[in-house]
Design a protein around this nucleic acid. Structure first.
Lengths: 142, 142
DNA sequence: TTAAACCTTAATGTGTACTTCAAGGCAAGT
DNA sequence: ACTTGCCTTGAAGTACACATTAAGGTTTAA
């Protein structure tokens, strides 16, 4: 499969695929006799994984560190698990931040009748959310 | 309250607060006689709102459009509701993308024993997730 | 009165994650 | 022979969201 087909299959631009290879987010890609990239299912999977993590807000640099560790020959099981769990925690916090913002907008939508954007209700709601977050963080710290 | 105190109270840098004012994400801030910003609770609330939406991945430009519409005198109720709902949809999709990535990493963590990063199981898992997403999108289109 | 610690604006710099451009090669069709 | 359409690399350009710097003003405290 050439790079254009791979691009169509993954929804990632050809330039971005080259960029990912250069940045070692995906392994070195095999070449044909004339030097063109020949992309197989394994590379496609890796591109899709990169896409999914990028969509989740993981930076290129963190993604590279992450992948480097996983691709290394040595048995890094412990560090790998720790890294996975760290990344999971980051993503769960992001998800919760998103959910808080969603809740906020839903609150606005449900209290639309009173031209609400700076009402006391909203203030209390925001502070309630903040207090809840602080409490969650305190619980985590235990 | 001067800009430094506001910065400490919100966790947003002074430069960022000035930037937000310039970009009309927050209303024009009152000045003291000598021209320094004098920030009150209302502005603090607006800064916190901006922070929350930024954390949820909303761009400055969309946030400005959004806020402009809400601050306008005319009764834009319909457009405002539509805008709110649109933004909610975007954020819910983001949240779901994040959840998918979380699921993926959890899957990795749970199947750690077999050096899993490119197994057939993982491939099937990714495709399952993709199929589920496609189905969700089809349902939305109804 | 001089330094410290705030503040102002305007301009310029920075990091990220690509995209686009320039210059060229290869292979097929007309 | 030439256009079309793919590919290559390296360099330069772009958009976003600020951060930093420059040049200056005010207030307080030694």
């Amino acid at each position: 499969m050439n790079i254009k087909e791979a691009s169509e299959k993954t929804g990632v631009s050809s330039a971005a695929i080259r960029y990912y290879e250069k940045e070692s987010l995906i392994p070195p890609i095999d070449r044909t006799e004339v030097g063109n990239r020949d992309i197989d299912a394994r590379i496609i999977r890796r591109i899709k994984f990169v896409t999914q993590m990028r969509a989740a807000g993981m930076s290129i640099e963190n993604l590279r560190r992450y992948i480097e560790l996983f691709d290394a020959q040595e048995d890094n099981t412990k560090e790998q698990k720790a890294l996975l769990q760290e990344q999971l925690a980051v993503m769960e916090e992001k998800r919760d931040d998103l959910q808080a913002a969603i809740d906020h907008l839903n609150y606005k939508l449900n209290h639309f009748y009173d031209h609400m954007q700076e009402t006391e209700e909203e203030l209390r709601e925001l502070e309630k959310q903040h207090a809840a977050k602080v409490e969650r963080e305190n619980n985590e710290a235990d």
